[in-house]
């Protein structure tokens, strides 16, 4: 594989001709990468809460998260094929949800642990029940830490999903295999640039959301 002599890195007319493709692929990319983040968030909050409530649960959950995080995505996608088949979006979504969990669960637990005991006691003394206290007091206080994890998970998911093109589901990743097969760099560069733009846009959206969600924490910076 090598560049044909005289081939420029970017052919702008090709870019201009494929704008509609970019839009379609970007939409697909967003769906494939954000669905796992949403699913991961929905699962990690109860899992994190449970890990706080029953502390014996945390070590295995934490170890599992660490282990899952270490497994290369390509291998996971390939093994998923056995369960979901080549033409299912779940082949990409399930492993990516796993990675989101691996990042988010420890952050949810950390965030909840950082709620000062005095605040928790004050809430209890004022008559909050366990669940109401959790939803109205503890989770909001944990938002900055959870958000930091969510940002990492979102950006990772957006960049990782292109690997799933190798199992037929990759959004912008299709630009990479396309460029590789034709030894044509323009789509590859377009794919990289679009992925980075998406990642930063999503990150910016999350930062903005966090500022709106936690007006009391504006001066503090989130941990990444």
């Amino acid at each position: 594989m090598a560049l044909v002599d005289g081939e420029p890195l970017i052919r702008w007319n090709w870019v201009a001709d494929h704008l509609q493709d970019f839009v379609d692929l970007t939409g697909e990319h967003l769906f494939l990468s954000l669905a796992p983040v949403v699913l991961g968030l929905l699962i990690s909050i109860p899992l994190g809460v449970a890990s706080i409530r029953w502390s014996w649960l945390y070590p295995p959950v934490f170890a599992g998260a660490n282990l899952l995080y270490a497994i290369p995505s390509l291998a996971l996608f390939m093994l998923m094929l056995d369960l979901t088949g080549l033409n299912s979006r779940w082949t990409a979504i399930v492993p990516l949800t796993g990675y989101t969990l691996a990042v988010l669960v420890p952050n949810v637990v950390d965030g909840l642990r950082q709620v000062p005991a005095s605040v928790r006691q004050a809430a209890t003394a004022m008559g909050f029940g366990t669940w109401r206290r959790l939803i109205q007091v503890e989770l909001p206080i944990a938002v900055p830490v959870i958000m930091a994890g969510l940002r990492v998970a979102t950006v990772s998911s957006i960049s990782l999903v292109s690997v799933a093109v190798l199992v037929g589901q990759g959004g912008l990743g299709q630009l990479f295999t396309d460029g590789a097969q034709r030894e044509f760099p323009t789509p590859i560069i377009a794919g990289i640039v679009l992925t980075i733009i998406l990642a930063f846009a999503a990150d910016l959206a999350l930062v903005t959301a966090q500022r709106l969600l936690t007006p009391w924490a504006r001066s503090r910076k989130g941990t990444a």
Partner: peptide
């Protein structure tokens, strides 16, 4: 350093590897 880390996390590895090989050869 912090910006670099964010940027690196956003890079799609498959695309980078293919691009590097395409430009510099296998």
């Amino acid at each position: 350093a912090a910006s670099l880390a964010n940027f690196a996390r956003a890079l799609p590895t498959l695309g980078i590897v293919i691009l590097v090989v395409l430009i510099y050869g296998v």
